[in-house]
Amino acid sequence: MKRIIPMWIAIIGGFAMMLSSFIPLAESWGEVFANVFNVVAAIAFVLGAGSLAKQHLEKLSRRDAGWGYSIITLGSFIVTLLIGMFKIGIHPNPNFPQAAYSGSNNTEGSAWSWIYEYMITPLTSTMFALLAFFVASAAFRAFRAKNTEAILLLVTAFIVLLGRTFAGVVLTGWFPEWASGLRLENLSIYVMQVFNTAGNRAIMIGIALGVAATGLRILFGIDRSWLGGGDA
């Protein structure tokens, strides 16, 4: 029962979604299942929040190394959650003033937008910006023009990087008109439109075949590894 019922739930849900694309009468099933899916996925956030709280509370109770940071994580989590859930500082939508919670969380000047603008944006974008340094240093150490493949990768990266910046225009802008195709900005476009498109297209076709094969294995009950305990 612990394995058979979940397997049948997956099969029924999956086939309902698939058939809704092929049978006009079953079109509404797809919508219903998609809505249920979205709601279950949204409730999964509660599970994620619960797991986060559980993990950090355990860390706190054990006084593990860095438990003070767990207080910051939990505190910021709870404060953000309360502000967002109760729409603190948000006025109703002027079109529906009778509905107290009709206003959008993104209204300028609200506590929620303050958190977004002054916490989420700087924190996340700086975190990603930091990767610029690590990518550059890793590339410097790892990239060596040892063979044809490595040379192709390096040269393409340089063409794309320079071709999309002002440096590329300055470097090759003096090329005569008849050789304008060799200017870095034009080469970059050519590489993207032809070689990059071909490579990406093959990758996408490969992914689609892989997804279809894996999906069918799950829907026919051949692949049960997702239930845990191997393929059996």
Binding site: I5, A10, I11, I12, G14, M17, F33, V36, V40, L219
Partner: peptide, 9 residues
């Protein structure tokens, strides 16, 4: 199981 099945479909 529901999420896996619907996602697959």
């Amino acid at each position: 199981a529901f999420i896996v099945g619907v996602t697959a479909g």
